[in-house]
Design a protein around this nucleic acid. Structure first.
Lengths: 336, 336
DNA sequence: TTGTACGCGTTATCAT
DNA sequence: ATGATAACGCGTACAA
């Protein structure tokens, strides 16, 4: 292994000078710097990260907390985090919060200095415990966030997305618009529900309790089927369904098939996230698009700032969402 | 931060003694060790990983190379690696081989000592370049492996799995058994194909070229649809399909639907892997089960041995696969 | 059996 | 502008 001492010797300078060239090179004369850079190049010297970490008291590691990497949505966001993390020189420490308590994980990580910061991808909207950690440790919430804490976060505007998805369905001529939400306490769930409600109100359509159903906390497929059956097996059933996740939407499509209800004609379905399985079966799912990669990239960028000690220009970042109409939605035919 | 010196002072011994207690405690008298352990406990001392890494010239980091974490199959295996890695004290460095050359990644990692070892989840069966790296650096191949290299690997018996999947379909009374394979050069692809061929031969059924189709390298959904159409739109079409991946099987089911062919009655379909979307639409997919978690766990366990310098008792580990019959397969009715 | 002291490769403080 | 040198926290010869 070639060390900083080797470079110093080769360049005929001291290790201090080499170190300066490697870092805040401002204080070194250009001719000297040039010689050093050449020596570095020639020996293909790369500083030992371990030694640097020890001296700087940092780890260049980031803790990522998410429920389940097996879920395509989280995998996509993680992909974004990962890509930027590599560019920024971070190694990722991934922990699943399904099997372990996120607070305990965070506490341990901070105490043992195992990471320089953390990205939290799943938290209930009314949690308060996070505050005391983010007060003294760099943390960014990604996708979800806890309202009582002023911890930095990045997400889409779930209220507007919910509003737009619902309005789109109404614009298709559908007036019996149902929603399949979730029993969880996440911020996105609440905001999408509110967007749905306001969109209907603004369209002069009254809210019907019987058009509202919930999947379980983690949008499990079984409970989504259950919720869809509840809604679609009624005599006066919805003619459109806003599902707050693609997995739910897929279940809704399957249930419609079971009940002999045609999608998109008799019931149009909109999903959320735009993950891979929106295009695995016909009808391909119309869905609200979350910029998963960008969400992840932004989260690690913000965290990098926090770790560097720079204040964030914007602690509550909102990224633009999109919508794509595919095969699961169409205008309501009057004669239907 | 509490250091080894703090513990030494508290216990009234030297740092060397504390260090000995933390590691190969053989050379320290039990009474002393006890005092030290108590001090460690009282101060809740945890050794600084950075310092330890520097001193030991290791990183406690493992490089994981896989094509795409967004693919549920890889995500599942990665999950297994990750879980064991945490227990073993490793941090994972995940790199996507879709955007970067695995050899370059490996080379860089070794040169810069960024990781203590690597797990490689995707390699063509005839690659030779891996040998020179695994000669001097701990590497374990997981799921796939290159035949010309004697690099350690863990996988299922893809030949037997392919043989069994095909035999199962034959056992259902089906004699026109097709296969949708892939254009890639992975070991699993070849072995499953051979299993398919031998199963048919052993059943006294002749191989028909027109019952064989291929998806593209990465089993993309579009190309899988294409391959399925090729097979199923023939006049004398197959009455069963062995698909070497669940994504392909899903596409086959969709195509059958488009063509008005009933699954499982007219054509029975078997997939491979048992990932999440086998149970997202009806008919739920019958499939060969890969023990994804176990594969990942075993890989990191083996790598840990290699890193520790212990020779592997078994360098070519084969884990048991399974099969689950769900809704996409059924006996052939004679009157059909 | 235990302690002293040095070195791992780097950065940062202090001289010069 | 540059060079010695002392840390960072730990492990381990070597000495006792």
């Amino acid at each position: 292994m070639v060390t900083i001492a080797d470079v110093a010797k080769a360049a005929g300078v001291s290790v201090a000078t080499v170190s300066r060239v490697m870092n805040h090179s401002s204080l070194v004369a250009e001719p000297t710097a040039k010689v050093v850079r050449e020596a570095i190049e020639r020996l293909s010297y790369v500083p030992n990260q371990q030694a640097r970490n020890l001296r700087r008291n940092e780890s260049k590691t980031v803790l990522v907390l998410l429920p389940n990497i097996t879920n395509p949505y989280y995998a996509n966001v993680f992909d974004g985090i990962n890509e930027r993390a590599q560019a920024l020189g971070y190694t990722l420490f991934l922990c699943s919060t399904e099997r372990q308590d996120p607070e305990a994980l965070l506490k341990e990580t901070i105490e043992y200095k195992r990471a320089d910061g953390a990205i939290l991808m799943h938290i209930d909207r009314d949690e308060r415990w996070l505050q005391k950690y983010s007060d003294r440790f760099p943390i960014v919430q990604c996708c979800e966030y806890a309202a009582p804490c002023d911890t930095a976060h990045v997400s889409v505007d779930n209220y507007r997305a919910g509003y737009e998805a619902t309005s789109y369905l109404v614009g298709l001529g559908r007036r019996k618009v149902g929603i399949i939400s979730s029993a969880n306490r996440m911020m996105s769930t609440l905001q999408r529900m509110r967007g749905y409600q306001d969109a209907l109100s603004d369209a002069g359509i009254s809210l019907e309790d019987r058009y509202i159903a919930c999947s379980d906390e983690s949008y499990s497929y079984m409970s989504s089927l259950q919720a869809a059956r509840e809604l679609l097996s009624q005599p006066d059933r919805p003619d459109a369904l806003f599902c707050i996740s693609d997995a739910i939407a897929l279940a809704a499509v399957v249930v419609a098939g079971e009940l002999g209800i045609s999608v998109p004609e008799e019931v149009s379905v909109v999903g959320f996230d735009d993950v891979i399985y929106t295009q695995m079966i016909h009808p391909y799912l119309s869905t609200m698009i979350q910029p998963c990669l960008a969400l992840g990239e932004r989260a690690i960028d913000m965290l990098d700032q926090l770790i560097a000690g720079h204040p964030l220009e914007n602690r509550n970042v909102v990224l633009p969402h999109g919508f794509i109409a595919r095969e699961s939605t169409c205008p309501l035919r009057e004669d239907a």
